[in-house]
Design a binder for these strands. Structure first.
Lengths: 205, 205
DNA sequence: CCTGGACACGAGCGACCGCTCGCCTACACT
DNA sequence: AGTGTAGGCGAGCGGTCGCTCGTGTCCAGG
């Protein structure tokens, strides 16, 4: 991966400094929102001078990009891994496992979720979410082609619908301070939606 | 409704000025994004001095709020009206009509949709979307209780799921410059999702 | 001990922002 | 014409921001 750093930190001390800056950046963002996210503020929070910050990050957006990329990578690893772990199950068990795993992944870091989803300004926000969606959608499309050949020729459409739907419901559930349903109810609804789209039986009810 | 204007414009000339400012604000936002949306820039685009702008708007956010509120009002009128217009149909015709009407409404002003969804900064963005969602969800909840009494006790949950899902799919479809499905296919998927959640037959296939 | 260069520092530059306020014009009314 | 006033005007204020660059520090190699 090409680095977005201005100068590659070669010594342990330099790498520690970059890490301190990134951690401080995440802390400022989480605690005070994007409005307070100025480079001077981040440098101060890291106990570092603005000049030092700019030895390693070419500009402010590079710093945001590092945070967003870290989050997207971890999040998509979680989700993709969770889906692949249940590949061998049969529907509707598969759907239920996948829904639960997805919800677990989304719930793991609500602070950064809120930041990436709601705080980052337009362009960065969209880029991060797109990267996450594409990764998850690719995994799902591949799975559908392999394990659900009946829907093969519309696998890309189905993956688009399922990813956007499941993402929206889980994210909003986690971000909602007072959600109108419980975790278990949400999983039920996720199963119902997926079953409806896939044309497989969800709950025999 | 309480006005967010600093001074209520009483004469025709004043009202025309407010309108010019609001129109210019929308134009700047649409053409150059929120980064270029400075009060000086808007005033210049309206052919008006910054001082005049601040005779009617107490601060910058008030101007954004007017734009957002106009959009939310029109959008939610469209959606709620479209839903109520098909109240008498039977599923799955009802679902198909509702899905089509929803898509029509969302497609009506893609420019402002993009602005409210992607450009406005966090807080304003969320407030506008919340207002829209609540309005549509209320209509849907009422409908479900009346016409779908079998699901009455979970009507609020169902409305939450349906509104978020349909909203996400339609909005993303409209904003996506190269969507992976056609309009007709999207309507089909909306019907399938809704049918799955409601537990009614969607397409007899 | 001397020296050179990598690195960290932080005051501050230049630009732009939201917003104000004293001035001036235009018009209603005498 | 004279005059009071509502309202439009725009230079510019106070402040913040992203970012720079001259200076100082520290340490490795001779």
């Amino acid at each position: 991966m090409t680095s977005s750093l201005r100068r590659e930190p070669r010594q342990a001390r330099s790498r520690a400094m970059v890490e301190r800056i990134v951690d401080a950046a995440r802390a400022v963002l989480a605690a005070e929102g994007y409005d307070a996210f100025s480079t001077n503020r981040v440098a101060a929070a890291a106990g570092v001078s603005p000049g030092s910050l700019y030895q390693y990050f070419p500009d402010k957006t590079a710093l945001v990009d590092v945070l967003a990329r870290q989050w997207v990578d971890r999040m998509s690893d979680d989700v993709a891994g969770a889906l692949l772990a249940h590949v061998d199950a049969e529907a509707p068990d598969l759907l239920r496992s996948a829904a639960t795993a997805l919800l677990d992944a989304v719930e793991r870091d609500p602070l950064m979720l809120r930041i990436v989803w709601l705080e980052l300004p337009g362009a960065r926000n969209v880029a991060a979410r797109d990267a996450l969606e594409r990764r998850v959608r690719d995994v799902l499309t591949t799975y559908l082609r392999l394990r659900h050949p009946a829907t093969a020729e519309r696998a890309d459409r189905l993956a688009w619908v399922l990813v956007l739907t499941a993402q929206q419901l889980t994210v909003r559930f986690v971000l909602d301070p007072d959600p109108p349903l419980t975790r278990e109810q949400l999983v039920d609804e996720l199963v119902a939606v997926s079953a409806g789209v896939l044309g497989v039986p969800g709950v025999p009810d």
